[in-house]
């Protein structure tokens, strides 16, 4: 299943939007954090987990989703949020902790929630799995259309919640797709050192559901496999587990010295950076011209600039608003 040209354009533009967004966040994050790096300082305090390199997974999957479909994301959620259609201005403002943010500054970068597009996060590893199964159950009980996609990292496959939710989804045949972004590292511990089997997609066999492994961080291949899985879920045939080989081009979080990486690993990953790879491929097969791709990049950059400007210009929340919104 090859994406149509407009879908390809959308995928490329969202990948670029995500990368440019992360580039902007990365730069602003460091404001006020030098010469001494203190996570609490600067316009964006706290932890920051960038998604550079993992964009193909988000767009390859979300290209098949509607606003009404549900996504649960992780502590590294920006690319997934952008691909799902989360409001970029409000998301940027949330990351800055501003009053105009999605949650008025209560959540920050690890807790991006946008009910308009059914997007939720948990900063706890694998804890989006249960809620995704529940959203899928909700659609099944109500007979309402929609699938739930839970994005997780490869480290999450060693969590109990992963197995409990997969079993639940399988035994109840829920319209759910689990997408494992295998960036090979759980902070500093490699997948090889932490995980007894090479491919988490093989774990699907334990639940009697299809499992697919996608090598090469290839957005088109991801689009194809995710499309089949999501269509299968929509047909009521139950969940699918997909693991995608992807690359974490940044550290686990900003400030991570990445001393645990083997020499040369980062250089090798940058050589495979999926955005230039996709650009080259779209040009090589003649489906896009330079001008068309430049236009998509310009439009992506404009969206990012607008979002960052909105976030910077927005006011801080009233401190005492910390005491509100605990209950509905």
């Amino acid at each position: 299943m090859q994406p149509a040209k407009d879908t390809l354009a959308w995928m490329y533009e969202k990948m670029v939007t995500s990368r440019r967004f992360e580039n902007a966040i990365e730069k602003i994050y460091m404001e006020g954090k030098s010469p001494v790096f203190n996570m609490a300082d600067g316009p964006i305090p706290g932890e920051m987990h960038l998604s550079d390199g993992q964009e193909p997974v988000a767009v390859g999957v979300c290209a098949h989703l509607e606003a009404g479909d549900v996504v649960t994301a992780t502590h590294r959620p920006h690319h997934q949020a952008i691909a799902k259609g989360v409001d970029l201005k409000k998301m940027a403002a949330e990351i800055f902790g501003k009053a105009t943010g999605l949650s008025g500054g209560r959540g920050g970068h690890m807790h991006i929630f946008d009910a308009e597009v059914n997007f939720a996060c948990s900063g706890i590893i694998a804890q989006g799995m249960g809620p995704a199964a529940g959203a899928a159950l909700s659609r099944q009980i109500q007979g309402k259309p929609g699938v739930a996609v839970s994005f997780i990292g490869e480290g999450a496959a060693n969590q109990g919640a992963f197995h409990e939710a997969l079993n639940l989804a399988a035994v109840w045949k829920l319209p759910m797709v689990v997408v494992v972004e295998d960036n090979a590292w759980g902070i500093s511990v490699s997948k090889e050192a932490s995980t007894a089997i090479k491919r988490n997609s093989d774990r699907a066999a334990a639940y009697g559901i299809p499992g697919h492994y996608i090598p090469g961080n290839d957005p088109l291949k991801i689009y194809e496999v995710a499309g089949e899985a999501i269509a299968r879920a929509r047909r009521g045939e139950g969940p699918t587990l997909i693991e995608v080989e992807t690359y974490r081009l940044a550290g686990h979080f900003m400030g991570d010295a990445e001393g645990y990486r083997p020499d040369g690993e980062k250089d090798g990953l940058f050589a495979k950076d999926p955005i230039p790879v996709m650009r080259t491929s779209l040009l090589a097969d003649g489906s896009f011209t330079d001008a068309e791709l430049d236009g998509l990049e310009t439009s992506a950059q404009a969206a990012v600039d607008e979002a960052i400007r909105f976030a910077r210009d927005s006011a801080d929340p009233k401190p005492e608003d910390a005491l509100t919104a605990v209950f509905a």
């Binding site: 949650s103 209560r106 946008d114 009910a115 939720a120 919104a325 605990v326 209950f327």
Partner: peptide, 8 residues
């Protein structure tokens, strides 16, 4: 509820 600012 809190993290979503009442969004959810």
């Amino acid at each position: 509820t809190y993290f979503s600012g009442g969004n959810f």
